[in-house]
Design a protein around this nucleic acid. Structure first.
Length: 942
RNA sequence: GGGCGAAUAGCUCAGCGGAAGAGCGUCGCCCUUACAAGGCGGUGGUCGCAGGUUCGAACCCUGCUUCGCCUACCA
């Protein structure tokens, strides 16, 4: 579409449902989201944190992804070869838990009933469905992801990268298999890492148990929160410094309920202050006891099995009991046999599996580990050296703390959905073969009796490789050399340890480079009460429900399908009683940006999104107004005029003002984005569009644009109209480019309709992002406009204060002289129109009968005051009161400044310009005060 | 137990050494032909408390109070 005229077919309210799908298709069909790794321009890359295939995206994803899209679109418009890498994560244990719950509910079966193959079939089907849904959501939000590159953590290439990484680390001695204390999740029947355990203090008891000496000379009392583990005790430990037990080291005690005898050992661990000072030692089921066991070469006797049930060698009566059942039985038996001492209530820290919620059992098992220390050292140093920076900076500490206190990473999981560990065990010679391709024989003895390890890898293992595996690693691809390292990673602070740290370690180890230059940590989205969103609570918001709207019925139906608890249903009814109105993707995106200040949380409510929907609508209507008035406009002619200094000088003051403001806002947005200050950027645009472009410029432009049908304008008016059209069109066109990264759909729609010079590209998203142009910065116009605004606002204020109807045109006098008076005379018409007044400008009103009676007065500054004659029946006292308040304010200011200026230290130590500023302010305030005092004197006469 | 952070207008938050700000809400008045998802105007704050540094503190330092979050193997 070209030049000259545009018709207005725009509706009064912006309708995103009509606009969004059209442009999404247009962008996708034209390949605008794709970046060519061979392009000569400077690369800019971000890898999307791959969402878990556990369902669909929530508002937290929408926040992070919107910020990424803003960055990527912004940089693309700045001419960078901007690439945003999409993908999804198999989320091993999360999907497991989900599928197993579903299996239990629908078929009352466990995964073991199904078998590995059948279970995996279900998992893949689930992945298909969930993955498609996620991609769909991402597309509808307008995210400019490079879809041709889309990857999955368990696709063929990723599998290859995982195997390669595992084998290399194994060969380097950084992956090993060892029997150590691990966290066992008895519900999912797998190991989980330390990070996947949530420890909370729960109410429990501290039981004292009497362990009699084997020689019958007495007893020692131990204190425990877990009496059932006594069946696996292999010692009692006391502190060597503890006087009470000095003579007992090495003595044997008989373990109650069993016939075993165990020694008393001296160890530093027991705290003499706690309990009895003597600790029962169960090396197989407690991390501390394990350590004690190591030090004293104690046997570790496992008495709890993988399902969380008691097992042999526990006495037969307890075998098969759950831990809780066993605890009750054992306490009862101890009591009956007289072994039980005091029982006190006690807070006990209890680890629970983050995924299944089951109580974690510490167990001793053979597992695969990554030796973390050498990797962490490099990862910590890279951040110390500033090769990767955290924004906001405070997260650096969190990262460093963990890196410097890191423990080995247990990477094997007893699950099926995930990357199978590339290790084969030989039943003939017990050797382990680890290699890239499945072996046919044992690497040591060549026996064919080999079997692959049953376990899969921790889901974060593949995630750790993601920034480079997605670009083709281990191959040396062009994509890798172009787009790695990424410029930015945008993610939540909750996965700094899980993911950011692992990517840093793996990235540095395998590529020698950091995976990204900057880590931007987003806030966490909560509901309007500050509560974390969760399906259990019913306060989650699906981004697409905000975009397209949802009825209460549809929300409840989904909650039902997801088996939401009753409390959640109640919350949904309360929060979304009237459903959710459709806001459009732009409004949601803009809201997320505008609310994204540097705080840790973003409280999101539909009402707040609504405010930004109104903004989008405002923009729409401003554009609609422009398009209704751009008939006859010739962009080429305007461009020719505006590119010369003389042409610019010929513009009217409001034109020069709005173009100057446009430079300022462009500058502000650019600087804010550079510093990841998304809220500042969004608010700068919001303020410019609403309070400068709409409130003032468009209002001032109206008279010049107005054209009566069938009436020809004379030449000067026609020229004037054309200039105003040009400035309005230009301001809007630039605004669309500024706003595009935030609100891509509505800006593309408007931009396509705006008349503009023909050399521009076919889509807004590939135009150039605005840069402040000094040639258009005009401080004089800004100062002049300020006076115009102050006068208009002052008049409106007086009118409103004295109850004049807005439509009523009131006579006002503006007392001012010199250039300011000339300026106001020049802009008499726009001021009168803006404030609905009849204005007289004069240096003095003493001789003017109209203004010598009862007048309302607004003193703008020492030079300018506004007088408004008031009807005889108005209460002069009200005006006196108002002005008295104003005087008091001025006096307070004057007092403060005088005190400062009387202070010799201030005069000698404060910088000169500050002192001068204070002097000027004092003069200004004093003049203002005297004018206000005059006003009161006048009123007294009236 | 260790660490980190926050307390500013009714609400959500900016400001982080030189005159207290925004958005929303609230209260008036207006359907003024771009927009009632709108216009105009008003109200509203000893910047958690107590000290200190400074010519000057919402801002820097110390202590306290109250809330968050992360982290940890006290039986």
């Amino acid at each position: 579409m070209r030049a000259v005229t545009t018709s207005s077919a725009l509706s009064k309210q912006y309708d995103p449902s009509d606009v969004e799908p059209r442009w999404l298709r247009f962008w996708l069909e034209n390949g605008f989201f794709h970046a060519d790794e061979a392009a000569p321009t400077v690369p800019y890359s971000i890898t999307l944190p791959p969402p878990n295939v556990t369902g669909s995206l929530h508002i937290g994803h929408a926040l992070g992804s919107t910020m990424q899209d803003i960055l990527v679109r912004w940089k693309r418009m700045q001419g960078f070869n901007s690439m945003w890498m999409p993908g999804i994560d198999h989320a091993s244990i999360a999907v497991h838990v989900l599928l197993e719950k579903d299996l239990k509910r629908r078929e009352n079966k466990t995964r073991f009933d199904l078998g590995r193959e059948e279970f995996l079939k279900k998992a893949w089907a689930w992945k298909e469905k969930s993955g498609n849904r996620i991609s769909e959501q991402e597309k509808l939000m307008g995210f400019s992801l490079d879809w041709q590159r889309e990857r999955f953590t368990m696709d063929e290439k990723s599998n290859g990268a995982v195997t390669e990484a595992f084998v290399r680390l194994y060969e380097e001695g950084l992956i090993f298999r060892a029997k150590r204390m691990i966290n066992w999740d008895p519900a999912s029947e797998t190991v989980v890492s330390d990070l996947e355990v949530d420890t909370v203090d729960e109410n429990g008891s501290l039981w004292e148990i009497k362990y009699p000496f084997a020689d019958g000379t007495g007893e020692i009392i131990v204190a425990t929160t877990r009496p059932e583990t006594m069946l696996g005790d292999t010692a009692v430990a006391v502190n060597p410094k503890d006087e009470r037990y000095k003579g007992m080291h090495g003595k044997l005690v008989t373990l109650p309920l069993t016939d075993r005898q165990i020694p008393i050992v001296a160890d530093e661990w027991p705290d003499p202050e706690f309990g009895s000072g003597a600790v029962k030692v169960t090396p197989a089921h407690d991390p501390n006891d394990y350590e004690i066991g190591q030090r004293h070469k104690l046997e570790a006797i496992q008495v709890i099995d993988s399902k969380g049930k008691m097992m042999a060698p526990s006495p037969a009566k307890y075998v098969g009991m759950t831990v809780d059942q066993a605890r009750k039985a054992i306490v009862a038996d101890l009591e009956a046999a007289g072994f039980l001492g005091e029982v006190k209530p006690h807070k006990v820290p209890r680890g629970r599996s983050q995924r299944s919620g089951a109580v974690i059992e510490p167990m001793l098992m053979d597992q695969w580990w990554v030796k973390a220390a050498p990797l962490a050292e490099k990862a910590a140093k890279a951040v110390e050296d500033g090769k990767t920076k955290f924004v906001p900076e405070l997260w650096t500490k969190t990262y460093m703390h963990w890196m410097t206190n890191i423990r080995d990473w247990c990477i094997s999981r007893q699950l099926w959905w995930g990357h199978r560990i590339p290790a084969w065990y030989c039943s003939a010679c017990n050797a382990t073969t680890v290699q890239r391709t499945p072996p046919t024989a044992c690497s040591k003895c060549q026996s064919a009796e080999i079997k692959q390890d049953e376990d899969v890898l921790d889901t974060w293992f593949s995630s750790g490789l993601w920034p480079f595996s997605t670009l083709g690693w281990p191959e040396k691809t062009r994509a890798l050399s172009t787009f790695y390292p990424n410029n930015v990673l945008v993610t939540g602070p909750d996965i700094i340890f899980f993911w950011v740290a692992r990517m840093m370690m793996m990235g540095l180890h395998f590529t020698g480079k950091v995976p990204f230059r900057t880590v931007y940590l987003t806030s966490i989205v909560t509901d309007e009460n500050g509560d974390k969103m969760s399906k259990m609570k019913g306060n989650v918001i699906d981004p697409l429900d905000v975009v397209y709207g949802a009825t209460l019925e549809s929300l409840l139906a989904r909650a039902d399908a997801e088996n939401a608890p009753e409390a959640a249903v109640k919350t949904i009814k309360k929060n979304f009683g009237k459903g959710i109105p459709a806001m459009g993707a732009d409004a949601l995106r803009f809201a997320l940006a505008a609310l994204n200040t540097s705080g840790r949380y973003i409280r999101l409510s539909i009402e707040r999104v609504e405010g930004y929907r109104n903004f989008i609508n405002k923009l729409w209507n401003a554009s609609r107004f422009a398009l209704m008035n751009l008939d006859g406009y010739d962009p080429d002619r305007f461009e020719a005029q505006i590119t010369t200094p003389a042409g610019r000088a010929a513009l009217g003051m409001p034109e020069r003002w709005i173009l100057s403001r446009l430079q300022a806002v462009s500058q502000d947005v650019d600087a804010a984005l550079e510093a990841f200050r998304f809220a500042d950027a969004a608010n700068a645009i919001y303020h410019f569009v609403w309070h400068e472009l709409c409130d003032w410029y468009i209002e001032l432009a109206k008279p010049h644009l107005h054209q009566q049908e069938g009436v020809e304008l004379d030449a000067p008016r026609a020229a004037r109209r054309h200039v105003v059209q040009g400035v309005l069109a230009t301001a809007l066109e630039t605004t669309m480019r500024l706003l595009h990264p935030f609100a891509p759909y509505v800006t593309e729609e408007i931009w396509q309709k705006l008349p503009k010079p023909p050399q521009l590209p076919g889509s807004l998203m590939i135009t150039v992002f605005p840069r402040a142009d000094q040639a258009f910065v005009d401080k004089t116009a800004e100062a002049e406009m300020k006076l115009l605004q102050d006068v208009a606002v002052g008049c409106r204020m007086l009118k409103a204060t004295y109850g004049f109807a807005p439509a009523q045109s009131i006579s006002v006098g503006v007392r001012v002289s010199g250039p300011k008076a000339e300026l106001l005379e020049r802009f008499r018409e726009p001021i009168e129109r803006a404030a609905r007044v009849k204005m007289t400008v004069a240096a003095n009103f003493d001789a003017n009968a109209e203004f010598t009676g009862l007048v309302g007065k607004e003193v703008l500054n020492s030079e300018v005051e506004i007088l408004m004659p008031l009807p005889k029946d108005i209460d002069a006292k009200a005006e006196v009161a108002r002005i008295t308040k104003d005087i008091a304010k001025a006096e307070k200011e004057i007092g403060g400044i005088e005190k400062k200026l009387a202070n010799a230290d201030f005069l000698s130590r404060a910088p000169e310009d500050i002192v001068a500023e204070q002097r000027a302010r004092l003069a200004e305030e004093q003049a203002r005060k005297s004018r206000l005092a005059d006003a009161i004197a006048t009123l007294a006469k009236a």
